[in-house]
Design a binder for these strands. Structure first.
Length: 114
DNA sequence: GTGGTGACTGCCA
DNA sequence: ATGGCAGCCACCA
């Protein structure tokens, strides 16, 4: 394999993010069994080369899109993809985590209660 | 094996 | 409210 089990675990968690919802790096890290190590998630996604993984649903703690080193059109593409999935963006370009933050435990029980 | 860096987060000023 | 510094783990040279 090209990736370690840690990466694979991270990808697995990211793949479990439901459509129309987003998760923070820290959250994914915690679910992946690496609490407090959001950097690894970001780094794992940076090394990610698989379109099967919805990496676009992973945002930073502020609900903004973290763009990669050097900067690229990935940011715009990510936003478009999320909007296409039903994720709303605030005027300031942020995502209301209160509404779209993924709740693994809730499992879509109370998230839709706007 | 060692050193530096990174798509982050949280606390302090 | 914003800005800056330190820390964690894994990958690359």
């Amino acid at each position: 394999m090209s990736v370690s089990e840690t990466y694979r675990d991270i990808y697995r968690v990211v793949s479990q993010i439901p459509r129309g919802r987003v998760a923070t790096y820290g959250q994914v890290a915690r679910l992946a069994g690496r609490p407090g190590q959001a950097r690894l998630v970001g780094y794992a996604l940076s090394a990610l080369n698989d379109r099967s993984v919805p990496w676009q649903r992973v945002v930073n703690a502020r609900g903004e899109i973290s763009l990669r080193s050097g900067g690229s059109q990935g940011e715009c593409e990510q936003r478009l993809r999320l909007e296409s999935e039903g994720v709303e963006f605030a005027p300031d370009g942020r995502i209301p985590l209160e509404r779209h933050l993924w709740r693994p435990d809730g499992d879509g029980v109370r998230q839709q209660t706007l």
